[in-house]
Design a protein around this nucleic acid. Structure first.
Ligand SMILES: [Mn+2]
Ligand SMILES: [Mn+2]
Ligand SMILES: [Zn+2]
Ligand SMILES: [Zn+2]
Lengths: 137, 137
DNA sequence: AAACCAATGCAATGGAAGTGCAATTATTAT
DNA sequence: ATAATAATTGCACTTCCATTGCATTGGTTT
């Protein structure tokens, strides 16, 4: 099992205390988080640092961005085999209208979508909205 | 064929000059528009009026909102049989990565999406990104 | 230790969405 | 037609999130 340091270094991200903490925070969360979620978790740190950390993670493809339609961008750690860097990450995202949380349905892939002649599909964003398992129980 | 006045009145929207102009603008556009697109088309009118007009149209279900992932909400006239008011409008939207425009693929419906046990799907947002017919030609 | 470069913190900016209230315009009642 | 009423429009202001410039700190390398 890889340590956090190893994960970061293997992607060419220099290891700092802050980066490790944020990585750990993301790893412990089972839902996608917003920047202000991270802010609330690390009140001592500056917003900008948190922002740039998550952007670095995104560039280096250890997190991916999720647009769930709430207007606030969310982030989640990439799982094994998440190819979001080459824009072919095709797993579903689910947004709960009740608890307002968004999660990756990592092993539910997006079906092939037919587009009209002349159109070229490169990427698909699919967000299912409804009630999550915790709220429907 | 219905006149614009008739369309508006039939949905309980009072007819004003501004509303007719905006409706016409939307009808002539074959792509989804942003609020600032409308702003640029009607520089004499106030932003707020344009904003509230489009919101009225949305409430009365003659336009629907599109979240194409650019972070800016877009709007398009509902076609015949567009049931976006009852949240079952399931046609595809296509966003061109080249010309940056977004269009409704009105007769391409979203396939049934499977979600895990315990999850209840109420609504789906699906945006295909790639190259549009005009840009790929 | 000096030089260097990357990471962090602070302050400010920009863009889009939304709201309170006053002024204007249209509709209805007298 | 005039007055009363209601809806629409315009202006100013606010909020929220995302993003950047620049100074400062801290770690690495020579
Ligand atoms: Mn995901
Ligand atoms: Mn549409
Ligand atoms: Zn929920
Ligand atoms: Zn195009």
């Amino acid at each position: 099992m890889e340590t956090i340091e190893q994960v970061l270094e293997s992607r060419g991200i220099r290891v700092t205390a802050m980066r490790m903490l944020i990585y750990k925070f993301l790893a412990e969360k089972e839902v996608a988080v917003t920047l202000s979620d991270i802010e609330n978790a690390f009140v001592k740190a500056d917003r900008t640092t948190l922002y740039r950390t998550i952007k670095t993670f995104e560039e280096k493809a250890i997190v991916h961005q999720i647009d769930d339609g709430t207007g606030i961008t969310k982030y989640a750690l990439c799982e094994q085999g998440c190819n979001c860097d080459i824009k072919t990450d095709l797993h579903l995202h689910f947004h709960c209208n009740n608890c307002n949380e968004t999660i990756c349905l990592t092993d539910h892939k997006i079906p092939q979508i037919k587009v009209p002649d002349g159109f070229v599909s490169e990427n698909v964003n699919l967000v299912v909205k409804g009630i999550c398992d915790k709220c429907s129980g």
